[in-house]
Amino acid sequence: MNDSIQPVRLSRVGLRLGERWLWRELSIEIAAGEFIAVLGPNGSGKTSLLKVLLGVVPATEGLVEICGSTPHSGSSNVGYVPQRQSFDPDLPLRGRDLVRMGLEGHRYGIVTGRESAKRKIQEVIREVGANRYANEPIGVLSGGEQQRLRIAQALVGDPKVLLCDEPLLSLDLAHQQAVSSLIDERRRKFNMSVLFVTHEINPVLPLVDRVLYLVGGRFAVGKPDDVLNSETLSKLYGSAVDVLKVRGRIVVVGTGEAALSELGGHHVARESGRAR
């Protein structure tokens, strides 16, 4: 793999769902080892952006490249941590089996070379600190434990780009930090790029290189301080938005659409009179 090839390159990309453009003219290049947080209100197309990068949904217009080629599902360059889904407690599937699927779950027929695969799986399970419960059924594990195994599943194929969809959702603060630093360590060690869709910027704020903020078809991209400020967000939302820093945390206070966005999760102060 040539180092000069950008892991992720989007050039004037647009995605239309039915009659509605989720976003247009989206251009961003993500360098190897860069950690990008993708923010924005519900329905702004954050998850859809990941689907485009996964090659599951084709972009309507523009150029998308992952490691120099058009995204296609099944690419070994990309790891994916989906939004949390619950597993049935009776499901006969161990955490280890879930991780293994990330490595060879897509292969038809009889798979050979099991020893090296086993070693690889064991290695990544240790890396995410899931050794203790990797043999338990996945459905009885806690949200944080499941999420570590999810990350192991995404990392086991040594991806160059990691796409995470709300990996911190419904985790407590300690697990949020553990999960984010896990991803951070990996990207530093292996120069892996990370696209991290989240409602909660604060737990990952110290790790983030740049922020991609999507609102109503428009977007802003840049260093956290350059995007997460009153001026930029007001322009983006088209209404008055205040960005406050309170004890090292970022709180967004807005009216209209901005008030309905959930940046900072439950830390959002809402002063809009418009009720849902």
Binding site: L54, V56, H72, S73, G74, S75, V78, Y80, P82, Q85, F87, L91, L93, L98, M101, G102, G105, H106, Q153
Partner: peptide
């Protein structure tokens, strides 16, 4: 894979 984890299975090209 497709039975227990359809979303990731789809992303993995299944």
């Amino acid at each position: 894979f497709a039975s227990v984890d359809p979303e990731v299975a789809l992303a993995r090209g299944i």
